[in-house]
Amino acid sequence: MITLENVSFAYADQGPSVQDVSFRLEKGEFAAILGANGAGKTTTVRLMDGLLKPTSGRVLINDMDTVKSQVSERARKVGFLFQNPDRQICKNTVREEILFGLRTVRGDEGEEALQARTDEVLKDFHFTGDEEPFSLSRGQRQRVALASILAVEPEILILDEPTTGLDYLECCHIMDRIRKMNEEKQVTVIMVCHDMEVVLDYARRALVMAGGRLLADGPVKEIFRNTELMEKASILPPQMIGLGLRLGDGFENADTPEGMAEAVMARRGKGGAGA
């Protein structure tokens, strides 16, 4: 689990970009950080992995202060998927890429075990292993990056806009895989994401940021239904929630097209209106 205690951060020559943020993420949670450009989301997730050190306050990963150990030492526990997979991929084949990540943080397990683990991951992600990452599409490269991170089986997964530049199917591939890890292996997930439909579909908890401060923290659907909060954070809620709020009158509980359609049909049944 990760704990932020009154964390503030300011880049050199600039005003504070994160101010007095506190929250605690328990094992197995799936949280999303929401907010407009410049709200401090990316800075916050970078602080969570210790890629940035807080100017004041503390960040604890499993009760260990991030300033007391190096980022690279934590890679076994914390996986970080960046927006741009090309900064991560450095090997010529997918197999080597996955092996590279494993050797770096699980080198002590012996080559045989790592090869076996690689085979397992390749199969899981439907790669042959001989693909050359740089000739794959952006979405495929993002999958390679994700595969090599999940291969080491981290306890915590941090995602910084993992679906930017991906098409719908690629986005679903990535997010479904992450959900599977979250549900089956209790991996704690925290992500920054601009697509509110994706947030609604996958995350259970939402942290809302604006101007470097944490405005709200709660269950995703509750957060999206807080019109005043959404306005303040410059967020447009997902369509079905927006529609439910417009309709009111019991419809605000629907959050998917299926749910909304059912609610409409149920009302028609009661009211006795004909087709």
Partner: peptide, 10 residues
């Protein structure tokens, strides 16, 4: 794809 880096409002 001119809005890839932009938030929903922008």
């Amino acid at each position: 794809e001119p809005t890839g880096e932009l938030d929903p409002r922008s």
